[in-house]
Nucleic acid binder design. Structure first.
Lengths: 238, 238
DNA sequence: GCATAGAATGACGTATACATTAAAAAATAC
DNA sequence: GTATTTTTTAATGTATACGTCATTCTATGC
C-alpha cells in the first residue's frame, strides 16, 4: 500500500519535474515568440487577441498576458482595437539594437576575461568553436548559425552577470529574423570564426581590454555586413 | 436598476489631471512602480494579487497584467501562491546593474557627442546643470537628486537611440531605491557636478571618446561610493 | 458626389466565476 | 515528539460575461 502510493507520488513528481505543468500563459508566450522569430508570424502583420487565442486554442486571457510580456521584450506592439503588431525591424532599429549589443557583449567579454573560468566552461566554448569550424568546412550554414548563437550565448554567460545575459538574449531575439535572412546572402563567415577564437584566447589569457576590443570590432563588422546586405537586397524592413 | 448600479461602477473610471482616460492596468503599473521605488512597498515584501487589487480598488485582472510588466522590468518577482515579491537589491545586484548602466550610459555619451545637438537640447541640459549647482549651494539634496536624474535622463535621450533610453531608464528605476537611501549618507556630491559639466563639454565639442571616458569614470566612482556606503551602514539589501 | 451624424459592429478592458492545486493544517501512525 | 498521510484552505490560472468605445458602415443633408 505505502509502496504503491509512494511510487504514485514519485511518478507524479517526475511528471511535474519534466515540466508538463506549464501555464497557458507560458505556452502562449513561448509559441508566439517562436513563431515571431521564425517569421511564421510575419513582421508587420497584425493579429487580434481572439485570432491568436483561437489559433492557440485557449481563451483571450493568457494570450493577453503573453502579449504584454512580448511587448516588454520588444517583439510586438499592442495597439488596442488594431491588433497585436509584430514589430518590423527597419535599418534604424537594427542600428539601435546592434549598438547596444556590441556594447553589452563587449562588457561581457571583458568581464569574462576578469573571471577564472572553470574547466567545463572552457570545454563548452572550445566545443562550440570546433562545431563552427566543422560547419564552415562542410558549408552548413544552418549549423554554423546555430553554433554561432551558442557561442555568443556562452560568452555572455561567462560574464557572470545574470542581468547582462538576459538583456543580451532579449536583444538577440529581436535581431534573430534579420540574421536568418542574411545567412544565405552573406559570404562564408570565415573572419567570424577567427574573431571568435581570438576573443576566446584573450579571455583565457585574462586580457579583458583586448577581448573587448576584438569583440567590439567583430560585432561592428557583423552589423555593417548585415545592414548592407539587407539594404542591397531591398529589405528595408525585416 | 441594474443600469443604475452599472453606471455607478463606471463612474469609478479613472481620469488623470490631463483628462486622459487610462486603463486600470496602466494605473496599476504606474502606482505599483511608484510605491516600489519609494519604498512604500518595501523590498523583500510579498503581496497577494488580491491584496494589491483591494488596495488599488480594482479586480485582480489588471493587477495581474501590471505585475507581469513590472516583472519584465525587473522590479518584482511573481511567485505563484507565494505572492508578488518586491525584489530586493543585494550588493551583487547593484554591481550587475551598475556595470550595465555604466556601459550603456557611456555609449549614450559617445553617441550624443557624435550628433549635432539642437539648441533646445543644449539649453535643457544647461538648465539642469545649473539647477544641480544651485541645489548644491543651498544644500538641498532632494532637489539635487531630482536634477541629477533629469541630467542622466537627458543625456541618454541625446544619444538618439530610443531603445538605449528605455533600457537605461529601466535599470535606473531598479537602483532608484539605493540612490535615495544613500542620498543622506553621502558627502555633498561636488565631484559629480564637475563630472557632469565635463561630460557635457566633451559632448558639445563632439569628442565622443572623451565624453565616454569621463562618464564611465563618473559612474564607476558613483557605484563604488554607493556600494561602500550601503555596506558601511549595514544595508546588505535594499 | 461629399460631408457629417447617427447607428451598427466588434475588439478590448475589466469583473467575476470556477476548477485546479499548492500550501497549510489536522490527523494519524510510528 | 516526529514523520507521514489526509483534509482543508485559499491563491492562482483560465474562461467567460459584459459594458464601453473606437472604428466602420449607413443614412441623411447639402
Amino acid at each position: 500500500m505505502t509502496l504503491h502510493k509512494t511510487s504514485d507520488m514519485i511518478s507524479k513528481t517526475v511528471e511535474t519535474e519534466t515540466g508538463k505543468n506549464i501555464s497557458q500563459t507560458q505556452r502562449a508566450t513561448a509559441i508566439l515568440r517562436e513563431m515571431i522569430m521564425n517569421n511564421r508570424l510575419p513582421a508587420g502583420s497584425s493579429h487580434l487577441e481572439s485570432e491568436l487565442a483561437e489559433m492557440l486554442d485557449m481563451s483571450r486571457t493568457p494570450v493577453r498576458e503573453a502579449t504584454l510580456v512580448l511587448e516588454a521584450q520588444g517583439l510586438v506592439e499592442v495597439r488596442p482595437r488594431r491588433g497585436i503588431r509584430i514589430l518590423p525591424l527597419a535599418a534604424q532599429d537594427m542600428a539601435e539594437i546592434y549598438q547596444i549589443l556590441t556594447e553589452l557583449e563587449g562588457l561581457a567579454a571583458e568581464s569574462a576575461a576578469r573571471r577564472d573560468l572553470a574547466p567545463d566552461e572552457i570545454y563548452a566554448v572550445e566545443t562550440v568553436l570546433e562545431e563552427m569550424e566543422t560547419a564552415l568546412e562542410s558549408d552548413d550554414r544552418e549549423a554554423w548559425a546555430s553554433a554561432d548563437e551558442r557561442f555568443h550565448d556562452l560568452l555572455v554567460n561567462l560574464s557572470g552577470n545574470r542581468r547582462l545575459t538576459m538583456a543580451v538574449n532579449a536583444y538577440n531575439d529581436q535581431v534573430h529574423r534579420a540574421r536568418l535572412l542574411t545567412l544565405r546572402l552573406r559570404p562564408l563567415p570565415l573572419q567570424s570564426n577567427a574573431d571568435h577564437r581570438e576573443v576566446f584566447e584573450a579571455i583565457k589569457e585574462g586580457d579583458g581590454k583586448r577581448a573587448r576590443r576584438i569583440h567590439t570590432a567583430h560585432r561592428t563588422r557583423a552589423m555593417k555586413l548585415i545592414t548592407e546586405l539587407l539594404a542591397q537586397h531591398g529589405f528595408h524592413q525585416v
